[in-house]
Design a protein around this nucleic acid. Structure first.
Lengths: 119, 119
DNA sequence: CCGTATCCACGCTGATACTG
DNA sequence: CAGTATCAGCGTGGATACGG
């Protein structure tokens, strides 16, 4: 894969990378975070709209994730007083930093569609 | 906001991508799969070696993951009869297809190191 | 050294129902 | 439409002990 499998100083670098990898996994932890980010980045704004765009998610999980994501500045929540009351979720610049990860994962998923059917 | 958020043909494409994304998340599900793949792709072969290279993992979790990963052709397990008995884990071509995802996640983790400290 | 087995606690998840 | 409440189950994780 790379130029050197056993060069001095490598373990140190590896440790850093492992840490970075585990940090990232922690942040996007769970099954729903990335699909939600993807949905919002694709322009979905309303709660039910987001919900419908993600197969399998339940109201409770979406609600929980959205709440936590708002706290972490991953989404912006705006309430337009009604009636009828209207709530909008928007992606933040921080949210968009996940773009390349999501893209890579979509690419992987498409490429391995057939393999997955077998499992 | 009105109805016209969806562009021609977009929903269909989105649905495919959401599915691909969720497939990928399913395959790499959990906190340990990717770090283990990364460790083995980095040349770690022995059980304890892999274990030590992943902060926080327990013997039980590593054992469980490795067993399942062998079934899914993600790793190749070889026993060199001893004594002492020697077991080696090696990455498969399939395993290596996760490379770009892992790289992207490491990159993300490094870039957001500071932000993470705050949380 | 290389794991497997068991017990136990806890949090995440899902299903369902209900409110404003 | 936009959520919250409640209950139950299971997977994950830690501790510990044991076997090859």
């Amino acid at each position: 894969m790379n130029e050197a499998t056993s060069v001095l100083g490598k373990p140190r670098v590896q440790a850093e990378e492992v840490q970075a990898l585990q940090d990232t996994i922690y942040v996007i932890g769970g099954k729903w975070r990335l699909p939600i980010i993807n949905s919002i980045c694709n322009g979905n704004k309303r709660f039910r709209e987001i919900e419908r765009s993600i197969p399998g998610i339940t109201t409770r999980m979406l609600s929980k994730e959205l709440r936590e994501m708002e706290l972490n500045k991953l989404v912006k929540r705006t309430v337009h007083p009604g009636p009828p009351v209207l709530v909008e979720y928007e992606s933040t610049p921080y949210c968009k930093t996940f773009g390349s990860i999501i893209l890579e994962m979509i690419r992987w998923g498409k490429e391995h569609r057939d393999k997955l059917r077998e499992e």
